[in-house]
Amino acid sequence: MSKLDQSTLAAIRPDFAAIAGWIPQGASVLDLGCGDGSLLRYLRGTSKVHGYGVEINHDNIVACIKNQVNVIQGDLESGLSGFESNAFDYVILSQTLQATRHTAPLMQEMLRVGREGLVSFPNFGYWRNRIDILQGNMPVSEVLPYQWYDTPNIHLCTLHDFETFCHDNGICIIDRRVMTGNNEIKLLPNLLGSTAVYRFKRAV
């Protein structure tokens, strides 16, 4: 993906554009589970961010360097102890939340290190997923491409689940974008949206 231009990236990953829409020029950003650094590269183009990625996979570390993205090798599951409190304007967890084991502590860590958190995840309540379940199968789709036996996704949730989780954990949701492909979903988002992007902060 290293040579894709901005518009192509945005088309492939509609959550990128949503995230970029919230990030002002020159913000400092930490992208957790940053993969090959595509999002940070995209944000560098859209918002001139001062960004770092965190990634565990070696090949992705090399890919980030090739993308000229700062990357810190580390395991999100062991927390963000390598980062100072309030070091970043935004801490992003893009399409990774559902694959984390220590999900609640990680969300708290995001808000220790960053002023605000941004997460995107596949909405398990999306109608196609519900139909798959009704038909007796685990959902497999473009957004959830894995079979049940090889999926890294161990903490899938719906929009409702996530919002309840935030409420119960002292996390204040500031904004939300729900999408199916590139279309924003306003009506019945928990049913009609396949991907959600949230912006949140510590509840005071």
């Binding site: 001062h50 070696h58 570390i61 980030c64 990357v71 810190i72 090798q73 580390g74 980062f83 100072e84």
Partner: peptide, 21 residues
Amino acid sequence: SRAIVKALLHNRLKVSYAEIT
């Protein structure tokens, strides 16, 4: 090495860190 990285991050310097297996 991580202590070095942390200090560099504090100073908002561009840094990458790899822990080679």
